[in-house]
């Protein structure tokens, strides 16, 4: 526990990290509000009845998540890579020579931060977005609607999984730039470009690729072509657990 307190001091004492955490909240709430307004306004002005029926107000208000996940991935990466960049990893590990204990404390800190900003940002984005959508005269969602509470819990869980993936990659790659590239390619770019692959492969990737499966947990509309919310998140969690376990093994043995 004392090591976790130390990691918390390291976290809160860096302005760049606090800025990144703040950015996650702004991205979630701000982009969610912007998308909600844009989409709702478009539908209100020129949408057909069918378009309006197909509109998913929950998804629209949570669409900032796609960008917030990059900022959260950065937080996870920086938790380890900044120590390698500055060289402070040596005094840190001299103070806590059981390497797994240091990495576990970093993981605990990153988890707590990602959960809190994911939940706070998700709730803020949802409430703001729904107010904007109903302001445009469209049917909005409420917290009591089916799956909404689960989706809002899911924002924190999804961002935590991404943050821990970033932490694990940071612990293995050590360089901030290298680790960030991997996180962005794996979590964001590859899923986007996979649409250009042959359709059978693209469908398989859409169903099973960790980030695409995992994000099902924040959706409220069932889709038979992909996994259910919890099954999808389980795929992401299992993938994250494997990468995290690998990072403990590598970080535990390496010369620092």
């Amino acid at each position: 526990m004392s090591v976790v307190r130390a990691e918390w001091v390291k976290f809160r004492s860096l302005r760049s990290v606090l800025w990144t955490a703040g950015t996650v909240l702004v991205l979630m709430a701000g982009l969610g509000a912007l998308f909600s307004f844009g989409r709702a306004h478009e539908l209100a002005v020129e949408g057909t009845a069918a378009d309006r029926a197909a509109f998913d107000p929950t998804a629209a208000s949570l669409s900032g998540l796609l960008f917030a996940q990059i900022a959260v991935g950065v937080l996870g990466v920086l938790a380890v890579s900044s120590e390698f960049a500055s060289g402070s990893i040596r005094p840190s590990l001299a103070a806590v020579p059981v390497r797994g204990r240091l990495l576990a404390a970093k993981a605990a800190t990153v988890t707590a931060v990602a959960l809190v900003i994911g939940w706070a940002g998700g709730l803020a984005a949802f409430l703001l977005g729904q107010a904007i959508i109903s302001g445009q005269g469209l049917a909005s969602a409420s917290l009591g609607d089916g799956g909404v509470v689960r989706a809002l819990l899911g924002t924190g869980l999804y961002l935590t999984a991404i943050a821990l993936f970033g932490l694990a990659v940071g612990a293995m790659i050590r360089s901030t730039a290298g680790a960030l590239t991997i996180v962005i390619v794996v979590m964001l770019l590859f899923p986007i470009f996979s649409a250009a692959l042959p359709s059978g492969l693209a469908r398989w990737i859409a169903k099973w690729w960790p980030s695409m499966a995992g994000i099902r947990v924040v959706t409220t509309t069932p889709d038979p072509a992909v996994l259910g919310p919890w099954a999808g998140f389980a795929v992401l969690a299992a993938f994250g657990a494997i990468v995290l376990a690998a990072s403990f093994a590598v970080f535990g043995r390496r010369d620092i």
Binding site: R5, A6, V9, K10, S13, L14, R15, S86, S92
Partner: peptide, 18 residues
């Protein structure tokens, strides 16, 4: 080998707490 933007006091505090 100290993070450049962390204060000297916080650097020591993190070490002490650990």
């Amino acid at each position: 080998a100290v993070h450049a933007s962390r204060s000297g006091r916080n650097h020591l505090l993190a070490l002490a707490l650990s």
